[in-house]
Simulated scan of single mutants.
Amino acid sequence: MAWLDLGLHLTGLWFGPDLATRLARHLLVDPAGREQRHYAGFRPPRGHGDAAVLGAQRRMDTGFADPLTVTALASHAGLSERSFLRRFQRATGLTPAAYLQRLRVEKARGALERGSDNTAEIGWAVGYRDSSAFARAFRSVTGLSPGAYRDRFRVTARQTPGP
Rank of each mutant, 00 (worst) to 15 (best):
M1Y: 09
W3S: 15
L4N: 13
D5H: 13
D5V: 11
L6N: 09
L8S: 04
T11R: 06
G12D: 13
W14T: 04
F15S: 09
F15A: 08
G16S: 01
G16Q: 01
P17E: 07
L19A: 10
L19Y: 10
A20Q: 08
A24E: 04
A24F: 07
L28S: 14
L28W: 04
V29G: 06
P31Q: 01
E35S: 10
H38L: 12
H38F: 13
H38G: 06
Y39C: 12
G41E: 12
R43P: 10
R43W: 15
R43A: 15
P45A: 11
G47I: 07
G47A: 12
G49Q: 12
G49I: 15
A51N: 04
A51R: 07
L54N: 06
G55R: 14
R58M: 11
M60T: 01
D61H: 15
D61F: 07
G63M: 06
F64R: 00
A65R: 04
A65S: 01
P67E: 12
L68V: 00
T69V: 02
T69Y: 05
T69L: 00
T69F: 00
T71F: 05
A72D: 00
A72R: 02
S75V: 03
S75P: 04
S75L: 08
H76A: 15
G78H: 05
G78Y: 09
G78C: 11
S80P: 03
S80F: 03
S80G: 14
E81Y: 04
R82Q: 11
S83P: 08
S83D: 15
F84L: 00
R86C: 07
R87Q: 15
R87G: 09
R87P: 02
Q89T: 13
A91G: 04
G93D: 08
G93A: 04
L94F: 11
L94V: 08
T95M: 11
T95V: 05
P96L: 06
P96Y: 00
Y99C: 09
L100F: 01
Q101C: 15
R102H: 04
R102G: 01
R104D: 00
V105Q: 04
V105R: 00
V105G: 02
R109S: 08
G110K: 05
G110W: 04
A111R: 12
A111M: 15
L112R: 01
G115A: 14
S116H: 09
A120R: 05
I122N: 00
I122A: 01
A125N: 03
Y128K: 11
R129Q: 13
R129V: 03
S131M: 07
S131K: 12
S131V: 08
S131E: 13
A133H: 12
A133D: 15
F134N: 01
F134A: 05
A135M: 15
R136K: 08
F138A: 02
F138L: 02
F138R: 02
R139N: 10
S140C: 14
V141W: 07
V141N: 04
P146V: 03
P146F: 01
A148H: 02
Y149S: 03
R150C: 05
D151N: 06
R152T: 07
R154V: 02
V155L: 07
V155Q: 09
V155I: 09
A157C: 05
A157N: 03
A157S: 15
R158V: 09
R158D: 14
Q159V: 08
T160I: 10
G162L: 06
G162T: 09
P163N: 08
